[in-house]
Design a protein around this nucleic acid. Structure first.
Lengths: 192, 192
DNA sequence: ATCTATCAATTGAACGTTCATTCTAGTAGC
DNA sequence: GCTACTAGAATGAACGTTCAATTGATAGAT
């Protein structure tokens, strides 16, 4: 894959994300994507066999970006607790800084596009798994409550996603203090 | 509004909810709704001026159902903590027992249908407000941490919605024990 | 260096389908 | 006979997708 090709793909991704954030999946026509990314409709179909496929690919793209952002350069010497704070701070940060992606992923996740059996590929890219691993580590080292990891994960991720939504929809103004506070609440809940 | 009319409306609501759960907003054509609810397309347009309006009305309908279910017959003598457990247990229960509504509301909430300025009507029906009141009560009586109510609300509702989704999508099997555990985690986090 | 062959990349008009909505006609209850 | 309700074919706009035609780039042959 040459640079040109990557650029086109990224350009289409970026335009699509913006449009879907504004108009939703079905308010976003292929013609709109073409116009916004300065390519023709034909070009989009050169890179992606269908709109559905484009959307799937964007989903994987977003997941990857998130995952890379969260787990980049974690200092192995820090305590588990401080890792916990850093990771979930980044998690929320990412969503708030990449509103298009957040909006897209939320729409995707609760839409029929998200075929829950279709997860072969995402199994290995899926940020959830890395986060699960991190939570498992906490359980095994006795830092977190010994509960089903999905329970812990819900308490962590759910709370932060909900917080990010509220910021996004203007129900709360963003303050770093708030973010620290909610992670603190979650930590208090899940720690042993 | 006579009984007939209410029945028709409810029938259309119910059919639409099922279809949207299966096919999403845009996979659900008016003709499909007509067929499933055993009325003609014309009849739907007699009751609802447009598909958008139908969807808005269903949203209000769902919110009301949820709100009625959660706050029905709360024994004022119980402690705040046990109210907390009952309310959030019912909250999750409702979603798991009314999968169609849950799926619909999640899709709606993160879609452009949900115009966040259009909340005049929902302000007074919105379950969030009742839940906020309940959380505020906890803050003022010294049972909950004295934090911004949106922070507390995110920690509570977010965690449970995420849990409900996991059950729905088959990532965790439902156990009453799990529900108790996650509410316990949340309670530990938000209590003073 | 020039020519040629090959294939990837790009274009956008045209196509066929789908779908929300409209419209006209008919029915049931009062 | 009047009003509220029901019916579903017809309409027309919008959309995803296709395709024939064109350009650009690369590599081998002369």
């Amino acid at each position: 894959m040459n640079v040109q090709l990557i650029d086109k793909r990224e350009g289409i991704f970026s335009a699509t994300l913006t449009l879907i954030h504004e108009n939703g999946f079905h308010g976003t026509a292929m013609s709109m994507i073409a116009k916004k990314s300065n390519v023709s409709i034909g070009t989009i179909y050169h890179y992606f066999p269908s709109k559905d496929n484009l959307i799937q690919e964007i989903y994987y793209h977003c997941k990857n970006e998130l995952y890379n952002y969260i787990f980049e350069t974690i200092d192995k010497n820090d305590s588990y607790k401080s890792h916990f704070f850093i990771i979930f701070q980044r998690f929320t940060d990412f969503y708030l800084k990449n509103v298009d992606m957040f909006s897209f992923m939320e729409q995707f996740y609760s839409s029929p596009y998200n075929d829950h059996s279709y997860d072969e590929k995402s199994k290995y890219l899926c940020h959830d798994n890395k986060i699960y691993d991190f939570l498992m580590e906490g359980i095994h080292s006795g830092q977190l409550k010994d509960k089903n990891v999905h329970i812990l994960s819900s308490a962590c991720i759910g709370g932060l996603v909900s917080f990010a939504k509220k910021v996004l929809y203007g129900k709360v103004e963003y303050k770093e203090q708030y973010l620290t506070e909610i992670i603190d609440i979650i930590w208090t809940g899940v720690k042993k």
